[in-house]
Write a protein that binds this DNA or RNA. Sequence first.
DNA 1: TTGTAAGCGTTATCAG
DNA 2: CTGATAACGCTTACAA
Lengths: 336, 336
Amino acid sequence: MAATIKDVAKHTGLSIATISKYINGGNVLDKNKKKIEDAIKTLDFRVNELARGLKTNRTMTVGVLILSLENIFFTSIISSVENVLLQYGYSTIICDCRSDLEIEKAKLDFLVSKKVDGIIMVPHGGDVVHIKKALDKNIPIVLIDRMLKNIECDVVISDNINAAYDAVEQFIIRGHRRIGIIAGPKKIYTTEERLKGYVRVHEDYAIGLDGNLIRYGNYDVESGYRILGELMEMDNPPTGIFVTNYEMTLGAIMAVNDKNIIIPDEVSLIGFDNIQMARVVKPPLSIVEQPVKGIGETAANVLLKRLSGENGGIPSIYRLKTEMLIKDSVKTIINQ
Amino acid sequence: MAATIKDVAKHTGLSIATISKYINGGNVLDKNKKKIEDAIKTLDFRVNELARGLKTNRTMTVGVLILSLENIFFTSIISSVENVLLQYGYSTIICDCRSDLEIEKAKLDFLVSKKVDGIIMVPHGGDVVHIKKALDKNIPIVLIDRMLKNIECDVVISDNINAAYDAVEQFIIRGHRRIGIIAGPKKIYTTEERLKGYVRVHEDYAIGLDGNLIRYGNYDVESGYRILGELMEMDNPPTGIFVTNYEMTLGAIMAVNDKNIIIPDEVSLIGFDNIQMARVVKPPLSIVEQPVKGIGETAANVLLKRLSGENGGIPSIYRLKTEMLIKDSVKTIINQ
DNA sequence: TTGTAAGCGTTATCAG
DNA sequence: CTGATAACGCTTACAA
């Protein structure tokens, strides 16, 4: 049905080889050039990328694999990745593994079978052998958002430690001493890092840790909702609560609304990600904002470098700074 | 580098054809089966989909093209599309055209060149010749969210007319007579439909239309913000405002917050999409909820039907019902 | 059940 | 500058 080089050759009276050369930027006589262009237009010829990829072993396509398409943090990153890649002639195949390691494996396999030239992914974590396998096939991989042990590849992440440090410090300098944290699931990289910042700032200000103030959620709306309630029902509740991702922040605010808790009078709150949401709630929420555009662009550029053969050997870690947006959700406590 | 059928053949002592047959579910002697499975495992063989697609003219891949990846309405639809397709062995290539018709054309071309078996897309509108071209190449296309004139393909949309009708009716039965609408951009399908519902319910309740209450936004946060302000600064402002998509609803709420407008005392509000946002604001927002899961699943199933050759001839329109979520953002006006 | 061989649409080598 | 031809990895008659 679709026209092939053969058809163009017939139509012009030239050989297949000549057409191919023209398509790939080679030199052809001007009169032939014109003939070819005409034929391509009238036949609506388009290169068959399957055949080309089969031959050249390059598809000019990169795979992007994230945890969820319904998470605006990830989709914003993708958007800026695409933005950069497109300028260099690369297209992207986007996959969503629904935070499921098995699906992640299957999708990675899919990308490999589609012969993508490189991959940018948010790894679920817990297992890395499938990633290593892809790496072994000489497909460069750039990890974003989460770092993985036991694997050698470029990583682009937020400086989660200092993000949490800065957020909790905002509480401390306003007089808060009992600060709750709604952390992510145990063993997840970002959870550990954000917790590290929480602990470190407590140390630096010589504030003792209370294990009861540290709660592990699941990075979803439900756990944010539930844990906020739990913290507030403690005998000695925190005066400030730091929520460590967007979904849980949503949940926490819903709980605050449902329980008619006044912010910041009854409790102070700092959330994570999504500046728009911060402006939609009242009072406006203080949040930690991750550099989504920066993460996307950096990841794309790092991959492009690998793709262009600059195999600088050692993989690098790019640790991007977050920003602390101060709004009205944190109260200043006057010390007795 | 990567193992091919040839390698598996060598490793087992069998022929290429036999390996191929096994891979595709043919019958092989049990002892050979075992040999092949072993070889595949030890060589980490994976079918080269490029070669397979070149030969079979099927890639078991469908393309999904949307306006923006940063729009949770679209990404939620995609998510459910993928969910269905995956069960039938299809993978998806997701593209984002940033609401730009030219990029839409380029991405559609990309999908065609990747030899996808079918396409599900949210058309930008305004031009359809590129879509027709793809259709001419015998690639079935399912349109979602927006219907297009002059083109023959399956469409899955929300019942936008009655969505708007129901929303505005909520105002009316609570005594409102001056109801503002923040509509989308002119000439966009969904804009026209939602406006039609607005007009129709006014007719049915014999309420005169005031052109000043009808404002065209741009389906983005900025226009929602701006227009809410404009409506409220009228000499005779509306008592209720209906915002017709998610982004503009966000903007409208931000404006309400910035201007310290009390909802629903000073103005009543009904928004669009995203049930989570509705719970995050205070008071909880009444919204029109589109059946994202339903749209995705329906689109996927319709495409699957086309793909399986059930070319039932005439394209169908699937018009899915929305749901009206009543919360506390609409005030009841006691008639004098 | 298994093997041989042609062909899918390109690119790339090499001769003319 | 142009053309003939082999090869990419796979599927699929057809023959054994």
